[in-house]
Design a binder for these strands. Structure first.
Lengths: 212, 212
DNA sequence: TCACATACGTACATGCATGCATGTTACCTT
DNA sequence: AAGGTAACATGCATGCATGTACGTATGTGA
């Protein structure tokens, strides 16, 4: 096609490129400043545009945040959720998810979910509803894996699977959000944390990696 | 006149009572809405006053938030930190702190620290600086306990004490913030979580409390 | 190349929360 | 009990961010 050779971008390309840049800048801004402190002029400037471009692509601040959440959810599911879901062994799936999440969160974009969750928890807001939806879906998946592991005896008894799953995700987010840039300890501590939540003994590999 | 019915308070009592009510309302508001979404008129109304009373007691929004942080820090230290600090055994101190923190966070006020920390992390703001200071002090204490436990062999080797302490606090906050009102599982899962972070095996009492 | 559509920039209006200045009420002193 | 001071209420001004209307530039199709 000649269109591909042309230096001039097509409108669709142009639009998609702008949208991507705006989404990325918004994700950075959200993970740093949260929703309330997010200034759209700053987002647009970071992406190399002005507010005009932003309002042309998104209906407003709320729509932008919703798009960011969906974007992060998609990438997270592809990179972390899907591989874990494909694993048959429940314990391996749950620990792999912890390690994968820690690696995923090494990029600055990842804190978005955590920040928005704490900001909108227990309030009536579209962004909060979407976050709740995503988190609830994840919690259900984790709870299902915990129930499986309990039945097979691989995971010891404990509080109800739904409660334990909530704790699993809370602890994982808490650890990872504070250990960004602390590679490789982030992955190791993320796994250790969820093993504790699940009532599993420490990973046998653990002691070999360190001296006292 | 209602004044006849009201107990006639001294000015100092009156001031202290108002200040206490405003601080409590502000703490509730902060833990629910965060700093940016905190409306001083709402805080004053919740406490039974107007913004005038608030501005008479506090220089402004920032000073109010700082006072709340100091207030929470004091009550936390008295109820959770001091008892744990008085314990000699490092493992017992660290697990007791987790249980105590879970119980402390059952009141709605407790989420303040977590919310403000995520809101001001990595930004240049007086409230963020104070939170950082409090968290750093706590982290240092936890790291010290971890180092003690590692030396005595009660805690297995792992990442550096400072890193592990950061993970300890992050995981603890993460678990507890999502399990409010889930008594008694909050306490049990808080302890299980920090045991995992520290690389300790599950508490032996654990399995006896539950059926599969 | 010319008319149209879409991407983007700019300027203005609105709402809202803070901070302050000025009143009003409750408490203390003598 | 009367004047004074501190606690508290109320109205106003300012700043800032959002949203929108309109102007400009760039790509598209005939």
């Amino acid at each position: 096609m000649k269109a591909a050779e042309r230096a001039r971008r097509t409108q669709a390309e142009r639009r998609a490129q702008s949208r991507e840049a705006l989404l990325e800048a918004a994700a950075r801004g959200l993970s740093r400043n949260g929703y309330a402190n997010l200034v759209l002029a700053q987002v647009a400037a970071d992406a190399g545009y002005t507010r005009g471009a932003l309002y042309h692509q998104f209906a407003g601040k709320e729509a932008l945040a919703l798009a960011v959440v969906r974007w992060v959810d998609e990438t997270w599911t592809a990179e972390v959720g899907a591989p874990a879901a494909a694993t048959t062994d429940p314990v391996e799936a749950l620990t792999a998810m912890a390690r994968g999440h820690a690696r995923y969160c090494r990029r600055d974009v990842a804190n978005v979910m955590n920040v928005l969750w704490t900001e909108f928890a227990g309030r009536d807001h579209p962004v909060g509803s979407l976050i709740t939806e995503v988190v609830d879906r994840l919690t259900a998946q984790v709870a299902e894996r915990i129930a499986e592991g309990r039945q097979s005896g691989a995971i010891p008894p404990g509080p109800p699977p739904a409660t334990t799953a909530t704790a699993y995700l809370g602890a994982l987010e808490g650890v990872v959000s504070r250990l960004t840039g602390q590679a490789p300890h982030d992955v190791e501590l993320a796994e250790a944390t969820v093993r504790g939540v699940l009532g599993l003994p420490p990973s046998p590999h653990r002691a070999t990696h360190h001296t006292r």
